[in-house]
């Protein structure tokens, strides 16, 4: 259930403690990139049915940003990682 998120710092928490920012798989384009690339990055979002990477912030808990991998259809949560660690992993 997506209503319980396993925060890597605080443990199992209800979803009410979090706020959701959205897609975590976006990569910011180069500053010199084309207008189309920026338009795509800023405005265009997929609405997938299935696995989805999202940024969740544990606002009422440790206040850390987390990357939550979940299924938008079954609400199953596959993984939760700290945002900083995830960013380091993909060297962004």
């Amino acid at each position: 259930m997506a209503s319980l998120i396993h925060c890597p710092h605080c443990g199992v928490r209800p979803k009410e403690e979090f706020s959701i920012r959205g897609d975590a798989s976006l990569v910011r384009p180069d500053p010199e990139a084309s207008d189309e690339a920026w338009h795509e990055y800023v405005h265009i979002r997929a609405n997938p049915r299935g696995r989805y990477l999202e940024h969740w912030q544990h606002v009422a808990g440790c206040r850390r940003w987390l990357v939550v991998e979940r299924d938008t259809f079954t609400h199953q949560v596959f993984s939760v990682t700290d945002g900083a660690a995830a960013a380091r992993g993909t060297s962004r």
Partner: peptide, 10 residues
Amino acid sequence: SSNVLCGHIS
């Protein structure tokens, strides 16, 4: 100890 939501208050 941990930060938790109590009602609507952290």
